[in-house]
């Protein structure tokens, strides 16, 4: 029996709460409030402390999934929640004015953690806004010497979110019941990720 903690972070409106809900096997513990600033124009609730869900890996093994608030004033929650995490998933909303800058900000905020734990990056809302391109993100990450999984994702898609989690985990811990992870198997090399859906019998 083992349990692992994974953190999902990124700027406001990037899909963190949705991602936790998509991945979690239990009803998500949310702490949300009605926005009273500019965020109100974008959505009618915003996370103020954390989201929490779990992923059952079978045999009593469990992933504890935490989502952070996105606004910088909640940075103290980022610092608290990343403690003990074995990996980090960053979500970036491409339909924001400066998504590349937002990625930089989060790389900086988590600089100390990502020296020690793996992370993956998911770009959301690329269907609404195709620029910047995945290649531009990839260049930014490479310039900062990060070789990490990077995908365009939909936070509502279980397949997409599983891919982000698996790609991140595959960088450190292939022993974490990857084969049983939500019907997905992953043949991963950090540079070359392929995943195949398991056959239903």
């Amino acid at each position: 029996m083992a349990s692992y903690k994974i953190l999902i972070s990124g700027p406001v409106g990037s899909g963190k709460t949705t991602a936790v809900s998509t991945l979690s096997d239990i009803p998500v513990v949310k702490t949300d409030a009605k926005p009273t600033d500019g965020v109100a124009a974008l959505k009618d609730s915003t996370t103020v402390a954390m989201d929490y869900g779990t992923i059952d890996l079978g045999d009593g093994n469990k992933v504890h999934l935490y989502g952070t608030p996105g606004q910088e004033r909640f940075k103290f929650m980022w610092e608290i929640l990343v403690q003990g995490s074995i990996g980090l998933i960053l979500l970036i909303n491409n339909n924001h004015p400066h998504p590349l800058r937002e990625l930089e900000l989060f790389l900086e905020a988590f600089a100390r953690s990502i020296e020690q734990i793996p992370f993956s990056v998911g770009i959301t809302h690329m269907d609404e806004c195709p620029r910047p391109t995945i290649q531009q993100y990839s260049q930014l990450l490479a310039a900062k010497k990060h070789v990490v999984p990077l995908f365009s994702v939909d936070a509502r898609s279980k397949e997409d979110m599983n891919l982000l989690v698996l790609a991140m985990l595959s960088m450190i811990a292939p022993e974490i019941a990857l084969e049983n992870f939500k019907g997905l198997t992953l043949n991963a090399h950090p540079h070359h990720l392929r995943y195949t859906k398991r056959q239903r019998h």
């Binding site: 409030a33 009273t36 103020v48």
Partner: peptide, 25 residues
């Protein structure tokens, strides 16, 4: 409730944004 300062009588050395966010959290 979303962590923004509305009015305060706090010591000058307190970081208002953080206190507001912490209170809401």
């Amino acid at each position: 409730l979303d962590g923004l300062m509305m009015a305060s009588l706090l010591p000058a050395d307190v970081e208002e944004d953080r206190v507001a966010a912490m209170s809401a959290a």
